[in-house]
Nucleic acid binder design. Structure first.
Length: 853
RNA sequence: GCCGGGAUGGCGAAACUGGCAGACGCAGCGGACUUAAAAUCCGCAGGGCCGAAAGGCCUGUGGGGGUUCGAUUCCCCCUCCCGGCACCA
């Protein structure tokens, strides 16, 4: 393909009307390169601010079409807001810590830092070539010390507040590498580098952030985020998973060979949302990993073998995602526990369907009123005791025994001692209160959301600024000693232990308290820490005394519009919301939420499938830019589908877009010379009037979409229609039937409308029209409803709902006129001939329906 | 299993509040320009039937039912596709 060079030679011919995107785009690219402050923004109290942000990319090496789409949307919005007089902040940065850099280092023998910075340089160049209007002076690169030192600073604050703590937690361990693996490095339960080595679970002390402290607020504030997609809010609600219930203590009975209780204690704490069914509990079920199970198994080798079996089975099912589908089964421990409500001794079982990491890892099993318990009880012939009768409006049904299991909440208790006769909701309250009074339980709230484990046993991340001193224990690195620099030249290709642990200069430190020797923490932070607050750093990117200045952040925040992929709907956006609340409580900021409006764009797919190297359907932005130009690549990603839907990329579509851009270019090349700056006459001839009408309709459609549904595909269609109208008027233009001053105005507005979507071409044409000022500072065209109004309308005439004719009437025609005209219309008359008119329905300006019989 | 989103010409899609289904674009066909091609410009185009033609009739938005003068749009039932969650007690 040599389209570029071919047309490049042609373009040297004078008066050439062929649009050569490479020539035009390179000209502006050079100019834009020369002014680093072109898109700079500073707080300005005289202007309304607008903070538009696209999610920062991981510098994987090159942009993909998904990035292009994401940034094309954000860039269009930023440019539109600029043209509407806003003080726009539109920054970009790099989420540049993380595992791929280490993988690349292992595969290509390039240090992670070098690999990452090379990728950033390449992707930044791609972004510039695509013409995205970022304020590069605020660029944030998370893997550099001037950024990650503030991660460390925040960690110290979390630690001070008791929001960072250490706890034992499981990690994936590869015995062959003798190192920890990330979840994505575990393939089919084996190590990614040693396909025949089964990954083990090991318990390590790790750092956690107490996100659960804000669980309730994170959930509650979702109701206020009405600028967010409902889908994302629902996903976050489910993720937080608030559940109201009751904790009840079941005392473990003494066994026959009782030798005292183990570390697990003598009380089985059970969490239930249905304490009202507790008289129907016929067993207690424990998670295989429950501490009491461990105690019981110690004295019972047979039980121990069975429990180990359950544990490994659960783990496997969890890895393959089959958990939830495996058949329920379990084993009786031989022991009993007492139901505190009726003092009944019921058997204690261990079951594979009980999860240690939800609730208390133990349940009371009520087979009559829980599907899972029912299934389990059926299998092992456990007693199924009905304690709730459904209340139905149908009196006969109330008496009838329900189909088991009955899990409804509209019920009345039976066989439940003093609670018999209560309704479920009342019983739950009364029974929880009774448990609390008698100190064997209480009403409580459980969350699915867990504290955030941020330790990573990896090299390429922010070092956790903590020390271990033999004398003073865990000691924080003093603020003045930050940053703890991540050492370079670390050979991460070696196996065995944590990479930082092999660097003596890093590990060996001095205790700030006693001055004695201390060992440095060798874990690094999860990269979600970096992305949880980076958008605040953009507001004050070069501050070396604080993460950012509070006043400056207050000017820009919250982010007015955040745009990115839905894959970040949960983790990134929950952690970001948490971080904002934490910083607010530190007094650093005043906003409760970081993001006012969120937009999640659809994926870019090709041939119906996600683009991937293995499928060979990857479209490279570089190739698109080389073949069609940046404007065409961007415009096509806006035109081919509405932004919230998946986009099936088709190269033929870009060709069409390129044709369209050429059409705009040629029209203006041909007609720009006739332009002049005189005000157009107030009375326009009919041909000009119809162009004017179309123009104002187009301005309205494009402006409305920016403010409303963001269907940029229809914006582009509207502009295409306007251009088609102009081509249709070329003869009239040639015959000088269109006033030159009016034609100039139309061309000017056309270029302005195009500017958010195709900035290169728009700038070129702006100059061609003789405009000297910066296009971004030019005012967005205003539409005039009067001028957009049609003078004549074509009214469809239906007879009994079927289209029979169309009549043309003036726009201000009354209903009587329309009906009269319709009845005079030959086709309409034919359709109603011989029938009686029952009713006439006229929708003003839209349609007339005549009902006959 | 639960929660979202979706299904409209050969293809991407449009129809925003119940009012002309298919705007705009791609691919296609025809014409103009050209020695020819490319590029460009103009025109046609859901499907079926009738007609030499102009035109006319029927039908059509995943399937079935309903509400309505009128349904791609609202209600009920069903099928398929995509995404998320999933033994959450």
């Amino acid at each position: 393909m040599t389209r570029g060079s071919e047309s490049g030679t042609l373009s040297t011919r004078p008066n050439d009307e062929r649009y050569d995107p490479q020539r035009v785009e390179m000209k502006w690219y050079e100019r834009w390169q020369q002014d680093a402050s072109l898109y700079a923004a500073e707080p300005d109290s005289t202007k309304k601010k607008y903070y538009v942000l696209e999610m920062l990319p991981y510098p994987s090496g090159a942009l993909h079409m998904g990035h292009v789409r994401n940034y094309a949307i954000g860039d269009a919005l930023a440019r539109y807001m600029w043209m509407n007089g806003y003080n726009v902040l539109h920054p970009m940065g790099w989420d540049s810590f993380g595992l791929p850099a280490e993988n690349a280092a292992i595969q290509n023998n390039t240090p992670p830092r070098q690999w990452t910075l090379n990728n950033i340089a390449n992707m930044k160049a791609q972004m510039k070539r695509l013409g995205f209007a970022y304020d590069w002076m605020r660029e944030v690169t998370t893997c550099l010390p001037d950024y990650y030192r503030w991660n460390q600073w925040f960690f110290l604050k979390l630690f001070e507040q008791g929001l960072a703590y250490r706890k034992k937690s499981k990690v994936n361990w590869c015995p062959s590498c003798a190192t920890v693996l990330a979840n994505e490095q575990v393939v089919n339960g084996c190590c990614w580098r040693h396909e025949d080595t089964v990954v083990e679970q090991r318990e390590l002390e790790q750092w956690f952030v107490r996100t659960t402290k804000y669980a309730d607020e994170l959930l509650r504030d979702l109701d206020e985020l009405d600028g967010w997609p409902e889908k994302v809010r629902t996903m976050q609600r489910n993720w937080i998973g608030r559940s109201e219930g009751t904790l009840v203590d079941f005392k473990l009975d003494y066994g026959e060979n009782h030798k005292g209780y183990g570390p697990g204690g003598s009380t089985i704490k059970v969490f239930t949302t249905r304490v009202d069914t507790i008289f129907g509990a016929t067993s207690v079920q424990l998670a295989p990993e429950h501490p009491i199970v461990k105690d019981l198994a110690t004295a019972d080798p047979d039980l121990r073998a069975k429990v180990d079996q359950l544990i490994s089975e659960q783990r496997k099912a969890r890895e393959t995602g089959d958990i939830g589908e495996i058949e329920k089964h379990g084993v009786f421990t031989g022991r009993y526990a007492t139901n505190p409500f009726n003092s009944e001794s019921i058997p204690v079982w261990v079951a594979n369907y009980i999860l240690m990491d939800y609730g208390t890892g133990a349940i009371m099993s009520v087979p009559a009123h829980d599907e899972r318990d029912y299934e389990f009880a059926k299998k092992y012939n456990l007693e199924i005791r009905l304690v709730i009768l459904p209340i139905s409006t149908d009196l006969e049904e109330t008496v009838a025994e329900p189909l088991l299991p009955y899990v409804g909440h509209d019920g009345m208790l039976i066989n439940s001692g003093r609670y018999t006769g209560s309704e479920c909701a009342d019983a739950i309250k009364a029974m929880s209160a009774y448990a609390e009074e008698n100190k064997f339980g209480k009403a409580t709230v459980t969350y699915r959301l867990k504290d955030w484990g941020i330790s990573r046993q990896r090299y390429w991340g922010t070092p956790i600024p903590m020390l271990y001193c033999e004398k003073d224990g865990i000691v924080a690195v003093p603020e003045k000693d930050l940053p703890v620099i991540l050492p370079e030249n670390v050979d991460i290709t070696l196996t065995g232990g944590s990479p930082l642990g092999r660097v003596p200069e890093f590990v060996n430190a001095t205790c700030p308290k006693c001055g004695g020797p201390a060992r440095r923490e060798t874990d690094t932070m999860d990269t979600f820490v970096d992305s949880s607050w980076y958008f605040y750093r953009y507001t004050d990117a070069h501050n070396d005394r604080a993460p950012f200045d509070g006043k400056t952040a207050q000017y820009w925040f919250p982010i007015d519009q955040y745009i990115g992929g839905v894959e970040h709907a949960i983790l990134h956006l929950i952690y970001s919301r948490f971080w904002t609340k934490f910083m607010r409580d530190l007094g650093m900021i005043t906003n409760d939420e970081p993001v006012e409006r969120l937009f999640t764009q659809g994926m870019v797919i090709k041939d119906g499938a996600k683009m991937s190297k293995s499928l060979g359907n990857v479209v490279s932005p570089d190739e698109m830019v080389a073949r069609y130009g940046a404007d065409a690549a961007r415009l096509n990603s806006l035109f081919a589908a509405p932004p919230d839907r998946d986009l099936d990329w088709q190269d033929s579509g870009v060709e069409g877009i390129q044709r369209f851009l050429g059409r705009v270019y040629r029209f203006i090349v041909r007609n720009a010379s006739t332009a002049n700056s005189a005000a157009p006459p107030t009375e326009l001839p009919p041909q000009a009037r119809s162009i004017q009408r179309k123009l104002h309709q187009t301005i309205k459609r494009v402006s409305d979409d920016f403010q409303g549904r963001w269907h940029f595909n229809t914006c582009v269609s509207a502009i295409m229609e306007l251009v088609n109208t102009l081509y249709g008027a070329e003869e009239a233009i040639a015959q000088k039937l269109i006033p030159a001053s009016f034609l100039a105005e139309v061309q000017r507005d056309l270029v302005l409308l195009l500017a958010p979507f195709a900035p290169y071409l728009a700038h070129e044409l702006w100059e061609m029209l003789g405009e000297k000022g910066n296009l971004l500072k030019a005012a967005w065209p205003k539409y005039d409803a009067e001028l957009a109004k049609e003078e004549e309308l074509e009214i469809p005439v239906q007879v009994n709902g079927k289209l029979r004719s169309r009549i043309v009437v003036s726009a201000d025609a009354t209903e009587e006129t329309v009906v009269a005209r319709a009845l005079a219309d030959e086709k309409t008359r034919a359709a109603i001939a011989g029938k009686q008119i029952v009713k006439k329905i006229y929708v003003p300006g839209k349609l007339l329906n005549i009902v006959v019989k």
